[in-house]
Simulated assay, not measured.
Amino acid sequence: MTERLSDTGRKTILAPLFETGWQMVDDRDAITKTFQFKDFTEAFGWMTQAALWAEKWNHHPEWSNVYKTVTVVLTTHDVDGLSALDAKLARKMDSL
């Protein structure tokens, strides 16, 4: 079962993500990042790769795509906030 991140977990798990450009969402227990790509095809290809991991882990992002820009918001709806799954998917997205 997925659990909401504790204060200690937030410090250790989220800090490295903030160093790569992830930010907390205002008024919500969620993180966000905007990814820029060369063009629409590259952006959509990245989204396809990310979608395969999201489906595998049964943890789906909130995201939008406008041409070469993809904005992602991660939160775990089952716990009404951030969980280790959000950090795991964020790290995967950064590595794609």
Rank of each mutant, 00 (worst) to 15 (best):
A30H: 03
R91L: 15
V25E: 13
M47Q: 06
D27P: 11
E62W: 02
H60Y: 01
E55T: 04
D7Q: 07
G21L: 02
L85C: 10
G45Y: 10
Y67M: 10
A30V: 03
Y67P: 00
P61S: 02
V79N: 10
K68N: 13
K68T: 03
T75V: 11
G45M: 08
K56S: 09
L17T: 03
R4M: 03
F44R: 05
E62R: 02
V25T: 02
H60I: 07
G9D: 11
A50V: 06
M93K: 00
T71F: 12
S83C: 05
A43V: 03
T71H: 10
A15L: 14
K11D: 04
A87L: 14
L96Q: 11
S64N: 08
F40W: 11
S6Q: 11
T41V: 00
H59E: 05
A43S: 15
D94R: 12
N58L: 11
V72K: 09
V66C: 08
F44A: 06
R28P: 01
E55C: 00
W63M: 04
F40V: 00
A50N: 02
A43G: 15
T76A: 06
D94C: 02
F44Q: 01
L89M: 13
W46R: 00
E42A: 14
G45T: 05
H60Q: 06
L17V: 05
S6D: 02
H60D: 10
P16N: 12
P16E: 03
D29I: 03
I31R: 09
F18R: 03
H59K: 07
M93Q: 00
A51R: 07
S6C: 08
E3P: 09
T8E: 12
T20K: 15
F18L: 09
F44M: 04
H59D: 01
T48A: 02
E3K: 14
N65W: 00
K38P: 07
L89E: 09
V66Q: 14
V73T: 14
D78H: 10
K11R: 13
K33M: 08
G45E: 02
T8C: 07
F37M: 05
L85V: 02
F37L: 08
D7V: 01
K68A: 13
Q23A: 08
K38V: 06
F35C: 08
D94F: 12
W63V: 00
M47F: 07
T34K: 13
K68G: 12
P61I: 07
S83Y: 14
I31K: 13
W46K: 00
Q49M: 00
E19N: 15
M1A: 15
F35R: 03
T2H: 14
H59R: 05
L89T: 06
D80T: 13
D80G: 14
L52D: 00
H77F: 14
A30Q: 07
T69Q: 12
T75S: 12
T48E: 01
R4T: 02
H59L: 11
G21W: 04
I13T: 10
W53M: 08
F44K: 01
P61Y: 05
W53V: 04
